[in-house]
């Protein structure tokens, strides 16, 4: 198993800049869409990886976010609704010299493509999945999505939506993901740092990016973005640091001794030592899952952002390559004539 996700990928000959990653295509998202910020962050961060641009591939499904590959001057495929993780799996398992990225949205990844997402995560294929979550269907013009809050009034739910939303981070953790993070479109610095860690992760990395749809769900994440409200509503996770938030870190996360669950407390001198220290590398996903559940599914109040989980486990494409090598070692390189002949033959002479 490769120690670094990037070690097999050829490096660029020369220093790259953001413009090297911009394609010649006009970007056609609505003015003010959060996708612009994410595109800029990705284009701005890729040069620092120093990878040969031709060895980077972006694969997407269907939806607003899935137009992303057209704007990247790399290899790319805009595929069909929900199937990008499956297609990317085939590419990544056969081409370990590529850095394969999946761009998807809440409808694409969690509704029509839910099955492929969870299986990609459990397999731990070397894929980086960027899930743009705007809690709405944008391209189809404004129906509720699997991450919309209950009671969402949309064109398809005039009396309010009935079904409970997915928490994508909880879902990914339940699906055995080895890397799960959440970030926000408007926080370029945080977004870039999360992308950096995802890129370096061997295996599947899922990055949920809260992304504002200013046409159909404007302001969905305002509480997490506004400086004043964010202090109370956003929990920034940093590996090895006590989990504190609020004005001057007045609030913290502690483990409830009775239930083992996590809860939020006002930090005092008495309980300061009990504040949970974030361990993204914990072998068990239990605490990461509990952290993901702190967020209120309706208001997103107490939403943790940052890397919730980052652990090493066998990477599918490496394991597959190892089996191929082992087969050659055990049986020798395949001999077609011997294969076709098999063991029971007879000869007819003329």
């Amino acid at each position: 198993m490769s120690a670094d996700a990037l070690s097999l990928i050829p490096k660029a000959d020369a220093k790259q800049s953001m413009k090297d990653f911009k394609s010649d295509q006009e970007v056609r998202w609505c003015p003010g869409c959060g996708d612009y910020a994410i595109l800029a962050a990705v284009q701005g961060f890729l040069p620092e990886l120093g990878l040969a641009r031709e060895n980077i591939v972006f694969i997407s499904g269907i939806g607003c976010s899935s137009r992303f590959p057209y704007y990247m001057n790399t290899y790319g495929m805009h595929s069909i609704h929900g199937r990008a993780p499956a297609i990317a799996t085939g590419l990544a398992t056969t081409r370990r010299d590529l850095s394969v990225w999946v761009v998807t949205g809440d409808g694409d990844a969690l509704s029509i493509g839910g099955n492929h997402l969870i299986h990609a995560l459990r397999r731990n294929v070397n894929l980086k999945i960027l899930l743009f979550n705007n809690r709405i269907y944008g391209l189809t013009k404004g129906q509720y999505s699997p991450t919309s809050e209950v009671g969402k009034i949309t064109k398809s739910t005039p009396m309010g939506s009935l079904d409970a939303p997915f928490n994508p981070v909880s879902l990914a953790l339940g699906a055995e993901a080895s890397f799960v993070a959440r970030t926000i479109d408007s926080d370029r610095k945080h977004l870039t740092e999360v992308l950096r860690q995802a890129a370096a992760h061997p295996g599947t990395a899922l990055v949920e990016i809260y992304q504002n749809c200013n046409i159909f769900n404007d302001g969905a994440f305002d509480d997490l973005k506004d400086k004043n409200t964010a202090l109370e509503s956003l929990i920034r996770l940093e590996h090895g640091q006590p989990i504190r938030f609020g004005a001057e870190g007045a609030k913290g996360v502690v483990r409830d001794r009775a239930t083992g669950d996590l809860c939020i407390v006002e930090v005092t001198e008495d309980n300061e030592a009990d504040i949970l220290v974030h361990d993204a590398h914990a072998a068990s996903p239990t605490t990461a899952f509990a952290l993901s559940r702190l967020a209120d599914p309706q208001t997103l109040h107490h939403t943790p952002v940052g890397v919730l989980r980052s652990v090493r486990r066998p990477v599918y494409d490496n394991a597959m390559a190892d089996q191929l090598d082992a087969a050659v070692e055990q049986k020798g390189k395949g001999d077609l004539a011997a294969l076709l002949a098999g063991n029971d033959t007879w000869t007819v002479v003329g």
Binding site: R83, A86, I87, A88, G90, A92, T93, R95, N115, H116
Partner: peptide
């Protein structure tokens, strides 16, 4: 669907 999807991804890769 994933069976053919992965195959198509592999085809893209050669």
């Amino acid at each position: 669907i994933a069976g053919i999807g992965a195959a198509l991804g592999a085809a893209f890769g050669g």
